[in-house]
């Protein structure tokens, strides 16, 4: 019997739909401005039944299609009851929720759009994914501020280890806040999806990853070392990308990472105060898409103002290029 580590997943396919980003290889770049028309649903999702879905739903469906097709037909070959999804959301339904609530306040609930109404339940953004890909294992939505994308990876790994699924679409999806909701620029829009499987020999097309989590209460941010030390561990990877805002927790994390800077490459990715959960997962994807000639360890750290912390440790497999048909040339 293959022994599966409880915390590890293999990444076999990746897909991203976000403004200014053409694919996983470009995922380390910051998101572009979500200008009107950046996402063309009729191209990404041709056919019937998409028109009334909120755009965020479509980003997730489109990114999932890319991830699934990137891995060939592995997902459709997995038995339906072993297919699953773990989807992270934060601000995904915010603008729509505000719009629906204003309709209730100003005109009454009977004027709500019937097809928009189910989206008061934030897990509705991921529901269509099950129907589209025949996912009957489970479809889980997680919503921790900012760290939910990495949390989805952690939950997927645990569920796979517990035998609850064999192929999981792990995603994060966000939609821009409305102008009245935004306190500043930079709210995210788009979706990133990793097609993950058990981390068994030969399975890892892009590499393997495991995610740990911790909690640092904002008023205990002075204790950062006591929390971040065990979270990051004694032997952190050569490069750590840290997605941090300027909250007490984010600032404490950045300061703590400073001490690693002479031994490790620490890349601080600044996040706005109202950031969603897309950036950290996007970072994971970007690091997996990089080319190396030997197995290379990488990490992504994310910290929210509320104190949630997540640390994803990746081992990126050697790879020079991946062709459009999924054929890949291994580096010698």
């Amino acid at each position: 019997m293959v022994t599966v580590s409880t915390g590890e997943l293999a990444v076999v396919g990746m897909g991203i739909v976000a403004p200014g980003i053409s694919g996983p290889e470009g995922a380390l770049a910051p998101l572009g401005e979500a200008a009107p028309g950046w996402f063309r649903a009729e191209v990404a999702l041709p056919g019937r039944g998409y028109r009334r879905l909120p755009d965020a739903c479509k980003y997730l469906l489109a990114a999932s299609r890319l991830a699934v097709s990137d891995a060939g037909d592995r997902f459709s070959k997995t038995e339906r009851n072993h297919r699953a999804a773990a989807v992270a959301i934060n601000n995904t339904g915010a603008a729509l929720l505000e719009e629906l609530d204003y309709t209730i306040m100003r005109e009454g609930a009977e004027e709500l759009s019937p097809s928009s109404s189910p989206f008061i339940a934030m897990s509705s953004f991921a529901s269509r994914l099950s129907m589209e890909h025949g996912i009957t294992g489970f479809n889980l939505t997680v919503n921790s501020p900012f760290t939910a994308g990495l949390e989805a990876l952690r939950i997927a790994a645990r569920a796979v280890a517990a035998g609850r699924a064999r192929a999981v679409l792990v995603g994060a999806v966000e939609e821009a806040l409305s102008p009245s909701q935004s306190t500043g620029p930079g709210s995210e829009a788009g979706a990133a999806v990793l097609h993950c499987e058990p981390a068994v020999e030969g399975n890892a097309r892009y590499g393997t990853c495991g995610v740990r989590g911790a909690f640092l209460a904002p008023d205990a941010a002075g204790d950062a070392a006591a929390v971040l030390g065990p979270l990051v561990g004694d032997d952190p990877p050569g490069r750590i990308d840290a997605v941090l805002d300027d909250s007490a927790v984010g600032t404490a994390a950045a300061r703590w990472l400073d001490r690693l800077a002479d031994k490790r490459e620490v890349v601080i990715v600044p996040a706005p105060a109202q950031a969603g959960c897309l950036a950290p997962l996007q970072r994971v994807m970007g690091l997996f898409a990089q080319q190396h000639t030997a197995p290379t360890r990488r990490a992504v750290l994310a910290a929210s103002a509320q104190g949630t912390l997540a640390f994803a440790e990746l081992t990126v497999v050697p790879r020079t290029a991946i062709g459009v048909d999924g054929e890949e040339a291994l580096a010698v």
């Binding site: 897990s123 509705s124 939505t141 939910a148 989590g213 008023d219």
Partner: peptide
């Protein structure tokens, strides 16, 4: 989840599930 985590004095990972 974070409010509860801070209240109980937790330093362990939080999970917040939103499946309606």
């Amino acid at each position: 989840a974070a409010v509860v985590g801070a209240g109980i004095g937790s330093r362990a990972a939080l999970t917040s599930v939103g499946n309606a």
